[in-house]
Amino acid sequence: MVVMRKRIFKLLTFLVLLIFITSFFLNYSSTGVPTTWFPKQMVLHLSANLRKLIKSQPCTCAHCISQSKVSDWFDQRFNRTMQPLLTVHNAALQEDTYQWWMKLQREKKPNNLSDTIKELFRVVPGNVDPELKKKSVGCRRCAVVGNSGNLRESSYGPKIDNHDFVLRMNKAPTMGFEMDVGSKTTHHLVYPESFRELGENVSMVLVPFKITDLQWVISATTTGTISHTYVPVPPKIKVKQEKILIYHPAFIKYVFDNWLQGHGRYPSTGILSVIFSMHICDEVDLYGFGADSKGNWHHYWENNPSAGAFRKTGVHDADFESNITATLAAINKIRIFKGR
């Protein structure tokens, strides 16, 4: 099947070249006067339609996430039109989304969201990260690296680094743990209270749970006036402004509604990372999710004597989220590497 798709792509590419070469010779005579029977507009129209046809070709992976009619359960939940990142073009929230999002952390005196977003996009890019735009063909692979202690002594590092995109979250370090968790990071999902300094070429994806989170980005890259939300937060960050992306509040609600179906107060960074990756990649592999082989829930970079301390937060439904990823793996939409 992969060979057949490549042949089709080559044929379509040849047809595009043939159209343009034919247009060049037919549109212009030796005196430079254009003819009328094969107008340039027709060529542009044909090439535009051809680009759409090529773009609609399925990916070349063995199991493509976006492929429909594999599972009714998946098709009922996956909405390929949802945009994961906030931009100047999709910043207006529907009223129900706005009201839901504003209740997540119940700010006492929230600023105006519209004004905050305008100010935000004067500081950070207002367009989607071009690296996240899907290629027309091929197989784009994501590794989503969680923080579970089951990564210890897993030797997953080389496998993780072999992916096109490597997503990490919150305070997860790599230095000193490269053999097990890898050293490559393309996108790191954080919120102000979970921020850690990132590598120079790493894109920070802010997951905003309140308007103050957006204001913190503005402050942390300019004046440094915000140093406390409900806990102390870094007043200044070293992340380049052009490497800062904003997770769309509407996408958070989409994960909550479609995937979690109302379980928990709002999604964890882990499940937000998983669904995010399913919308930007053709294949997704999960590492560092769940308990270790002894049933302990802890971070791979620290020891925690109380198994399950990170499982019951009162905000997220870890069991339901775990069932979601297990079901996705069962229908070959993702792969889960359980470590030790």
Rank of each mutant, 00 (worst) to 15 (best):
K69Y: 09
M82A: 15
S56N: 13
C64W: 00
D75L: 02
N79R: 13
L85F: 00
K55A: 15
Q83E: 14
L86K: 03
I54E: 03
C59W: 00
D75A: 00
L85W: 02
L86S: 06
S68I: 08
S66V: 11
R80K: 12
W73A: 02
Q57K: 08
R80D: 07
M82D: 11
P84G: 04
C64V: 03
N79Y: 10
T60Y: 02
L86F: 01
C61H: 02
Q83V: 13
S68Y: 05
I65W: 07
L86T: 02
S68N: 11
T81L: 12
I54T: 03
I65R: 12
L85I: 12
D75M: 00
S68E: 12
V88M: 14
Q83P: 05
S56I: 08
D75W: 00
T60P: 04
D72C: 07
T87I: 08
C61N: 02
D75G: 02
V88P: 06
Q83T: 14
D72P: 05
S66R: 14
V70G: 11
T87F: 01
P84W: 00
F74G: 01
A62D: 10
T60N: 10
S68P: 01
L85S: 12
V70M: 10
N79T: 09
A62I: 02
V88E: 15
H63P: 05
D72T: 14
Q57L: 15
S68G: 11
T60C: 06
V70D: 12
Q76K: 15
W73T: 04
P84Q: 01
H63K: 15
K55C: 12
C64E: 01
F78S: 07
Q76P: 06
D72R: 15
K69V: 08
H63Y: 04
L53V: 08
T81H: 13
I65P: 08
